[in-house]
């Protein structure tokens, strides 16, 4: 493999790794914030900080602005999937069958999509663009 090809592969691997890791962080934070009343923790703001930091880390961990943008798209998809999986996975792990499973699944999907729009979209992108703006101002 030529040096050019190797650096290209490494670049894409880094984008995918950064996107996946920060996306999982954002997805976990979004779920934890929306269901904080089911956790033993009182600090409801803490998961929101995780979501905002996920956006900031996507930019900070990327090699440059261009790869950071691609990593942000990857992170957004991975985060959305993580959040939806966290909401719906108990339905599949528990012995729900037939109509009961479909009804429970629809209810959980609805809640997960609301949290994606109300929390993840705003806070994650807010963290990402804040990091881009601040780092741009000080570069």
């Amino acid at each position: 493999m030529t040096t050019f090809k190797r650096s290209l592969v490494e670049g894409w691997l880094r984008i995918l790794l950064v996107g996946a890791a920060t996306g999982i962080l954002g997805g976990m934070g979004t779920f934890s914030y929306t269901r904080i009343d089911l956790s033993p923790f009182d600090a409801a703001w803490l998961p929101l900080v995780f979501v905002g930091l996920a956006g900031a880390y996507t930019h900070l961990l990327a090699a440059d602005m261009r790869s950071g943008t691609i990593a942000m798209i990857v992170a957004f998809v991975v985060g959305a999937f993580t959040n939806i999986a966290a909401w719906t996975s108990p339905i599949f792990l528990l012995s729900y069958r037939g109509v009961a499973r479909d009804l429970a699944l629809m209810a959980q999907l609805q809640q997960s999509l609301i949290s994606l729009l109300m929390v993840y979209l705003l806070i994650y992108l807010g963290g990402y663009f804040a990091a881009v703006t601040i780092s741009g101002a000080f570069s």
């Binding site: 962080l25 934890s32 269901r35 089911l38 033993p40 923790f41 803490l46 998961p47 995780f50």
Partner: peptide, 8 residues
Amino acid sequence: AAVTFGYT
């Protein structure tokens, strides 16, 4: 975040 998520 993973610990918080696990409990939640």
